[in-house]
Amino acid sequence: MESAPARAVARSEPGRRSPRRPGSGLGPLLGTAGILGFLLLWELVSLAGLVDTRFLPAPHTVLVRLVEYLRDLAFWRDVADTMTAWAIGLTISVVAATVLGFAIGSSRFLEHATRSTIEFLRPIPSVALIPLAVILFGVKIQSALLLIVYASFWQVLIQVIYGTKDVDPVAEATARSYGLNRWQRVRHVVWPTALPYLMTGIRLAATVALVLAITAELIIGTPGLGKQIGLTQSTGDVVGMYALIIATGLIGVGINFLARLVERKALAWHTSIRTDLVT
């Protein structure tokens, strides 16, 4: 640890690797400038008539429309529909995947026996199930749920299996030597080990679930924001379409932010927040 303080400070030298410090200087300012710059560029492009304004309306008209939407109850009903499908689908897949993941991960036999099946089923793109969903459920919310659950289930399952397998043998041996029974070991050794993985899985699943919710709405026509985007497109309301796309992006940012917050909170005890590398 010799000369550690110096080294720690060395990192914050401009131009060197620097961990993002909250509220440190230029960063947020530049970020805001980036977004404003993007809007300005967009405005200029549409002002200069580089692209037909029927296809690319000026951003200020889009933002005005977005504000109108925010005051519109119908818009919020659509948001509520989307978020309901998202929440239900995410809950189902998280619960199912956690239970199954723990069962599979804690038994070598099950883990081996299910591996090929999981590896086969997982890459099937959930949108392949769209025709099936349509036949089975039509435009009901179940259609969206089928897609959401199928897509997000694997994200959580894989992480949980990995997490339960990752139990430190020394910790496991220690627990055994102190005479902890199976349940206690799960509670005090396996669960804490798998928790960070589970949290990562939930974070990934939360994002995927939103994508699939919007997809189902847009393509199948289950109620929600995605359906509205489809409507604006077919009625030629391009400004509305852009405004709704931005709205979905904002929801996505919100979900990412929340998911990361929850992940951090849940892992506050953990020395390092794991990356997504091991999936």
Partner: peptide
């Protein structure tokens, strides 16, 4: 720093909604 928030936003837009736009 300039592009991070913008990219975070674009990434968060579910890619499917870009289909009607790009059409």
């Amino acid at each position: 720093q300039l592009l991070e928030p913008l990219l975070e936003f674009i990434r968060a837009v579910p890619p499917v909604v870009l289909v009607p736009l790009l059409m």
